[in-house]
């Protein structure tokens, strides 16, 4: 098995989880109502948990003696391989829920496919995460539908969120030579299959929500190659603050 390709692939998964979990953590204490505050924090906790399992696996693959915290906390910005979508600011509740929905609709079919991976450990992590992700998608879909088909204001905000976030969605299906190698050995699924499922979910939910896809199909990418948005530096300065200010200490 191509260890370096697999490492790269697992790091993408864990970086996506970590950075989105970090973003959702910002909501804690500020949600639109207590019940939803608790719900968002639950999703954040699932994502942080997933990132721990994934970084542990990546650390094993890398075999350089780094642990999950060193992988999560002690890399330079261009070494993080998360998609641009997850680093976008929380914005209003509509922006957060649409970001979540686009991500969940991608993550669920991906994990479902990874359960069949020839890489046993990856399949095991996927099997555990798939249940959490199924719930996340249910929750974010429910909210997208309510916001879209709620009041005039909520519809407008949800549509604005789609119009803004749409440009970051294509990157979810990014592939390079690493992917091809892993696909050939049956370790990971084809992104075209995942994209098809994602499109179906997005289409169904947005239709029920009476929301439209934007006509402008211009897309951004870069995160998977380590080129991030300006937001990323600020995320990392929070995330890494303690590890950078107090190096080599145990907490």
């Amino acid at each position: 098995m191509q260890q370096d390709s697999l490492f790269e692939y697992v790091m993408r998964l864990s970086d996506d989880s970590l950075i989105l979990g970090q973003r959702l953590g910002e909501w804690c204490g500020h949600g639109p109502i207590l019940e939803e505050d608790i719900a968002i924090t639950n999703i954040a906790l699932d994502l942080i948990g997933q990132s721990i399992s994934l970084y542990d696996f990546a650390a094993e693959l890398e075999a350089k003696g780094r642990n999950h915290d060193q992988l999560a906390y002690l890399r330079y910005e261009n070494e993080y391989k998360n998609v641009l979508l997850v680093e976008q600011p929380n914005g209003d509740f509509a922006m957060t829920m649409l970001r979540q929905f686009f991500f969940d609709a991608f993550r669920l079919p991906l994990y479902e496919a990874l359960m069949q991976s020839r890489v046993a450990q990856l399949a095991a992590i996927a099997a555990k995460s798939v249940k959490e992700t199924r719930y996340h998608l249910k929750h974010s879909s429910e909210w997208v539908i309510r916001l879209g088909d709620g009041t005039e204001e909520s519809h407008m905000r949800a549509q604005a969120a789609i119009d803004h976030l749409w440009r970051y969605t294509n990157e979810l299906f990014y592939e390079n030579a690493h992917d091809q190698r892993l696909q050939e050995s049956g370790a990971v699924p084809l992104m075209s299959d995942i994209k098809e499922k994602w499109q179906k979910t997005v289409h169904e939910v947005l239709q029920e929500a009476t929301l439209q896809l934007p006509s402008n199909n211009w897309k951004f990418d870069g995160g998977r190659e380590g080129r991030h948005s300006e937001h990323m530096g600020y995320i990392l300065s929070d995330l890494q603050y303690m590890q950078r200010a107090y190096p080599n200490m145990e907490w």
């Binding site: 953590g25 204490g29 207590l34 942080i48 915290d69 995330l239 303690m242 200490m249 907490w251």
Partner: peptide, 26 residues
């Protein structure tokens, strides 16, 4: 301090704890 927790375990613990406070308020 959630976004600045010094490691992943502490971050998860802090999230769970602050979430509990919301539950208790409720």
């Amino acid at each position: 301090w959630i976004t600045r927790a010094p490691n992943l375990r502490r971050k998860a613990v802090l999230l769970a704890k602050v979430q509990d406070e919301a539950g208790h308020g409720l």
